[in-house]
C-alpha cells in the first residue's frame, strides 16, 4: 500500500493547527504539528474515516413554505454526501411535520436518519392568489 502524507487543518479549537499525518501505511502513522491530543485524534479520524453532518432542505407540500430544513442526526461518511443529496432531493414531504421527525431513515445505509429541524404546520402559502388591483 502506498504511503500517506497529508496536511489537515484542525477544527477542534480556533487555533487551527496544521497537522501533518504521514507514514508507510495506516498502522504506522506519525502525527506532527498538533498542540494537543484532541488534534491528534481529529487528524487520525480525518485520515481514516472522515465524517460530516449533512444539512439541506427537502420539498414540502401543503405548508406555508416550499422547503423544510433537514439534517442527518449523526455524521455520515464524507463520500456519501452527494449520493445522499440525490436521495434527499427526490423526497417530497407532506405537512404537518414535527421537529425531529424522521424523513429518511438510515439514508443509504449510513446509520444516520435525515430528520426535520423544525416543525411546519399545514396551511396555505401566505399572500394567497392574486387579487388584482386595489379597490
Amino acid at each position: 500500500m502506498s504511503g500517506i502524507d497529508r496536511e489537515i487543518v484542525c477544527i477542534v479549537c480556533p487555533t487551527g493547527c496544521r497537522i501533518r499525518v504521514s507514514g508507510a501505511d495506516r498502522q504506522q502513522l506519525t502525527v506532527r504539528g498538533n498542540e494537543c491530543k484532541r488534534g491528534e485524534e481529529y487528524a487520525l479520524k480525518e485520515i481514516s474515516d472522515p465524517r460530516r453532518t449533512l444539512i439541506t432542505t427537502v420539498r414540502i407540500d401543503h405548508a406555508p413554505l416550499r422547503r423544510l430544513p433537514v439534517r442527518t442526526n449523526r455524521e455520515i461518511p464524507k463520500q456519501s454526501i452527494f449520493p445522499c443529496m440525490e436521495v434527499i432531493n427526490r423526497v417530497r414531504v407532506e405537512a404537518p411535520v414535527e421537529i425531529g421527525q424522521v424523513i429518511i431513515p438510515n439514508v443509504l445505509g449510513t446509520g444516520a436518519d435525515v430528520v426535520a429541524t423544525r416543525s411546519m404546520g399545514r396551511g396555505a402559502r401566505p399572500g394567497g392568489p392574486a387579487q388584482g388591483g386595489p379597490p
Binding site: T53, I55, T56, P69, R71, I99, T117, R118, S119
Partner: peptide
Amino acid sequence: LQQCIHNGFGLHRFKEDLTGPEFAE
C-alpha cells in the same frame, strides 16, 4: 435563525450542536 439551517448553534448554551431552526425552536 430560520434561514441559518446549518449547525454549530448552541454549543455553549445547550451543550448541543444545533441548527439555526432547532435553536430558534
